[in-house]
Amino acid sequence: MTHATPKTRDDLFAFLDGLDIKHSTKNHAPVFTVAESVALRDEIPGGHTKNLFVKDKKDQFFLLTVEENATVDLKTVHTRIGAASKVSFGKPEKLMEYLGVVPGAVTAFGAINDTGGNVTFVLDADLMEEMIINCHPLSNDATTSIASADLIRFMEATGHKPLVLKVTS
């Protein structure tokens, strides 16, 4: 089965522009961990994200987008997100197949590549209190800032209804 080539950052920006969503992007050296990206904090205001790509035993996939320093209890989070069982991390192949990204570049913007609606997107309620949310634009060598309300508008435009739930402790 062949999959469409994942959309690029330019595709993402064109899509946002088409929705009249304001966004700004700062390029930087590739970052793979929250620790590496902390150096950018002074330059990029707003809520910074970490993303957990998880699945349940029925192969339902979820992307949890939370504030970078928040903790998610993987033993209990399934009770909040509607998973059929405890969750485990999804494999990199599925990450590429569904969201068009590699580990280290996981982002809520991956919704643009999930044309089959295979992933349920969960935005942490605490994160959504931030005016501005920062996510990778499908690659980890840049950070894109977008208003939290516009992030939801973007997801809805991709055919996803994100769940805004408190999934962190």
Results as ranks from 00 to 15, higher is better:
1 M>F: 04
2 T>L: 06
2 T>W: 11
4 A>R: 14
5 T>K: 11
7 K>W: 01
7 K>T: 09
8 T>W: 07
10 D>R: 07
11 D>L: 01
11 D>T: 01
13 F>H: 10
13 F>K: 15
14 A>S: 13
19 L>R: 15
24 S>L: 09
31 V>G: 00
31 V>R: 00
33 T>Q: 07
37 S>T: 05
37 S>H: 01
39 A>S: 08
39 A>Y: 07
40 L>T: 02
40 L>W: 11
43 E>A: 12
45 P>L: 07
47 G>N: 01
54 V>L: 08
55 K>I: 09
56 D>T: 13
64 L>C: 05
65 T>H: 05
70 A>H: 13
77 V>C: 14
78 H>N: 08
79 T>G: 09
79 T>E: 12
81 I>V: 08
81 I>Q: 08
82 G>V: 06
85 S>I: 13
85 S>K: 14
87 V>Q: 15
90 G>V: 00
92 P>M: 13
95 L>A: 09
95 L>C: 02
96 M>Y: 01
97 E>A: 12
99 L>H: 05
100 G>P: 04
100 G>I: 09
100 G>D: 05
100 G>W: 08
103 P>H: 15
104 G>I: 12
111 A>M: 06
112 I>M: 12
116 G>S: 01
117 G>R: 03
118 N>A: 03
121 F>L: 07
121 F>R: 05
127 L>M: 04
129 E>M: 12
132 I>G: 15
137 P>V: 15
137 P>Y: 15
140 N>Q: 02
140 N>L: 07
140 N>H: 04
141 D>F: 12
141 D>M: 06
143 T>L: 13
146 I>R: 04
150 D>M: 09
151 L>W: 03
151 L>R: 07
152 I>W: 10
153 R>A: 12
156 E>Y: 00
157 A>K: 14
160 H>V: 01
161 K>G: 00
163 L>N: 09
165 L>Y: 02
166 K>S: 10
169 S>K: 13
